[in-house]
Design a protein around this nucleic acid. Structure first.
Lengths: 151, 151
DNA sequence: GCCAATTCGCGTAGAATTCACAAAAACGGA
DNA sequence: TCCGTTTTTGTGAATTCTACGCGAATTGGC
């Protein structure tokens, strides 16, 4: 289980993974060796699954962010796996979830422009046999940027 | 602008930010010094906005992931700012967007359990003066985990 | 009060990053 | 084609960080 210091350490690492053991120690009132050991432990026990670089989507040329809701025509395990493979293979689909409620799937999508989003919907998703209905909502503003997990 | 090697470097850093300059060099057929220099350049020019640790939500005790759609009662700039402050202050709200379509806001939320999600909706969001309607969809399965941005 | 076990801090060895410098390549003009 | 300039590339040294081991201290149980 995690104590308060672990949680604060995880929060700090989510904000900035390049903090050194000494930085962490100062921030948490710990000696550098302890801070380092705690991080090692949290990594080994699987609390930290990895370290990633965060990119500026605009700088990367991804001007359009959207959410796409998808309903499938038929609901068998084979169709589901089929669709899962499809979204896994499309790099512009950042994440995909199955939700309670009307839509079967929610996709989070980054595209270079609206043309690309349109192409994704009409030339990739809709032609797929199992896809019955697609509804896209374009992001106008990200009010809160991807924040660290509450720990 | 980015060339192909830059894009592959950014993709690699999104998968694993702890790759060393030598690792990057081997992966991209570059000398370690060049790989390091490219990374420095991409950081300095703002393509990389930071490095973050990725956590296992389950391990962190966050068993419930949900999307919450919110409609505001009135649509003035003051109300919008008010609501933006609210979501910014709630740690269980990971991200928030304004979208085209029916709902004014979409919130991505991580909670420890359904009770917490319920509390968030009925004791935080709904009592807020500007909030007119709240509709939550619980994530049953994350078909595609948060993937790197397409570069 | 004593002993065991865990935790803590320090020091060292290995590795990575960063910077500067020199060589090589690319480029442009005469 | 040749030469001077500019940019790029590789190497090396200095600094810094991480990982690991060892001795000391603190904690907990009996």
């Amino acid at each position: 289980m995690l104590d308060l210091t672990d949680k604060r350490l995880l929060a700090a690492l989510q904000r900035n993974a390049h903090m050194t053991a000494q930085d962490l120690g100062e921030h948490l009132n710990l000696s550098p060796s302890q801070a380092g050991r705690r991080r090692q432990r949290l990594e080994a026990e699987g609390y930290v699954t990895g370290y990633t670089a965060r990119l500026d989507p605009m700088k990367a040329g991804l001007t359009v962010q959207a959410f796409v809701q998808v309903q499938l025509a038929t609901h068998g395990p084979e169709q589901a796996q089929n669709f899962a493979r499809l979204v896994a293979a499309r790099p512009e689909v950042i994440s995909a979830w199955t939700l309670t409620g009307e839509a079967d799937y929610l996709l989070r999508v980054y595209c270079a422009d609206l043309r690309d989003l349109n192409r994704l919907i009409h030339e990739v998703l809709l032609p797929h046999a199992v896809v019955a209905r697609v509804q896209s909502q374009i992001v106008m503003d990200q009010v809160k940027p991807d924040a660290p997990l509450p720990t």
